[in-house]
Design a protein around this nucleic acid. Structure first.
Lengths: 223, 223
DNA sequence: TAATAAGTGTAACATATGTTACAATCGCCG
DNA sequence: CGGCGATTGTAACATATGTTACACTTATTA
């Protein structure tokens, strides 16, 4: 059966295929088929089920009020849709989800999934891990964007790298990747980095950065 | 006992005091006392317990590398500390937590709390609600900050208000509150609103806004 | 009604960032 | 070695936003 991919899914990992089968047999679930181009979830629609992609591929896209869509992300098996939002009060899909090609989705009502969690500790731990990790990720991104200046973002980034306490760090991204991560343009980031070097805050050699003025950097990470 | 505030806490709501007592008696827990000024959690420290404020008041604050602190938020009884992060992989406190005045905190190891969730469905539903709602909140804030221009934020804000489809909405915040929400200054927001009015996109009368050019607004909410 | 605060409109100027384009450098691979 | 793509440095100019200050309107309360 096509449910075998579930053993690798974040929500069912740690369970054998037969254990999963046994658990699912105790509840009602469906496998829905979505031909390419059809929509599995509409932005703003209420979330009432856990939906896990079994095969195919889907994409999340935002739709503006004039009906145009912008692709946000790809979702592949065996990922779940909007897993971190399922049990929120009045939670609704933040994006619409459309099938890139013929896809199958396992649909479990959220009440049924709730009882699965209560029955099997591994399921509970898996789900908690997924949703907490998502919250951590969002919180981290948010902290970054809350620095208004590029200087602030870059200083905060440097001082959060491993080894910052030694005063020497190695950045793990290219300038382009970093600028995307910050939500700014690449030339702007380059200008700021060079400016901070001229100010004597840091010295940069390729991907190795020496933090020359810790206090000065700290001043930038305030607010 | 001072645990009576728990009946109003997000994690234990829906249970009677005696039910809570019975549940807690099955596990190990502690009530720790923090005199004013002492720290209950250090930023970066690993999260291993559920911590619920029973009395007093605490504050979350960020600390930069030079040791200076900036207050982020107040946390009052019967709230929990960093509830949405507890079960993340390698999750650590994003902020330090300090007692504003003498405070008491209920400490439950996260493994014990996990078994509470499995035993009592209401606890499980409560926790899932807390963490999912938090994820929704963060996701929503993130979407806002991902619009680079004030125009984009304001257009997105207007088109997410109830009644936007009728072309007439009523904003529920003052300009100052809105500008804080957007992370921009008040005069800048005022300038943009007036500019959009001059461009014929909207017409503003006090807190009532008429959306005159839906397509134009939609263009601003792209990207 | 008068006084006062809260909210809003506006202006001049400083600064940060985006945009676009091109040059310089590095690393990889034929 | 030589060429080519990826990465980075840099510049000129346009634009968006912050900063500061003040006038004006509306709401609140004495």
């Amino acid at each position: 059966m096509q449910l075998s991919v579930l053993v690798r899914s974040p929500l069912f990992r740690g369970l054998t295929e037969s254990e999963i089968e046994k658990l699912l047999s105790g509840i009602t679930y469906r496998v829905k088929h979505y031909p390419a181009g059809t929509m599995a979830a509409l932005s703003g629609e209420e979330i009432s089920s856990v939906m896990i992609i079994l095969s195919g591929s889907m994409r999340g896209e935002m739709m503006d009020i004039s009906g145009r869509t912008v692709k946000i992300e790809d979702i592949n098996p065996p990922q779940a849709l909007a897993a971190a939002f399922i049990y929120g009060t009045e939670s609704r899909y933040p994006v619409s989800v459309t099938a890139n090609n013929d896809s199958e989705i396992l649909v479990i009502d959220r009440a049924d999934y709730l009882s699965l969690m209560q029955k099997e500790k591994k399921i509970l731990a898996n789900y908690l891990n997924v949703v907490c990790t998502k919250a951590l990720f969002l919180s981290d991104r948010l902290r970054f964007l809350s620095f208004h200046t590029i200087k602030g973002k870059y200083a905060h980034y440097l001082t959060s790298l491993p080894g910052y306490s030694t005063g020497r760090v190695t950045v793990d991204k290219t300038q382009k990747e970093l600028s995307d991560y910050f939500g700014v343009t690449r030339p702007s980031l380059a200008r700021v980095v060079r400016g901070m070097e001229k100010d004597g805050l840091i010295s940069v050699d390729r991907r190795n950065v020496v933090l020359k003025d810790i206090k000065g950097l700290a001043a930038l990470t305030a607010l």
